[in-house]
């Protein structure tokens, strides 16, 4: 983390159904936030590095995400590409006591 990191509250956890993702506009950036069935949160860049597929529309299983366009696969924990040749930018994300999703930008 650098000192330019800012924390942004993007909305309540229930905005995202279990096992799915939603895209949020944070300033000029777009971030896809996912909520796994076990309740973990992950945030990554909104578009697939391959052909700009909307990652929030992907299929999520555990911490693996499959892009809806051409099935590139990513590990949401690290952003690493599991199938495909370019990984994702990840953002630190957590929920506060009030159930608000907080993404660390920068």
């Amino acid at each position: 983390m650098t000192d330019t990191t800012t924390e942004v509250m993007v909305g309540p956890v229930d905005e995202i159904p279990l096992g799915e993702g939603r895209t949020f506009a944070v300033g000029d950036e777009r971030v896809a936030v996912f909520r796994t069935r076990s309740g973990q949160l992950f945030a990554v860049q909104a578009e697939c590095p391959h052909k700009r597929g909307p990652l929030a529309d992907g299929l999520l299983g555990g911490t693996t995400l499959i892009c809806p366009l051409h099935s590139w696969k990513f590990d949401l924990r690290s952003g690493e590409a599991l199938m495909g040749d370019c990984g994702l930018r990840t953002y630190a994300v957590r929920a506060d006591e009030a159930g608000q999703i907080i993404v660390s930008m920068g």
């Binding site: 942004v8 509250m9 993007v10 905005e15 799915e20 895209t23 506009a25």
Partner: peptide
Amino acid sequence: ATPNQFASLLPVIQ
């Protein structure tokens, strides 16, 4: 059927 089922982008309320 689900929250924001048809939302392509959710705004952040600052």
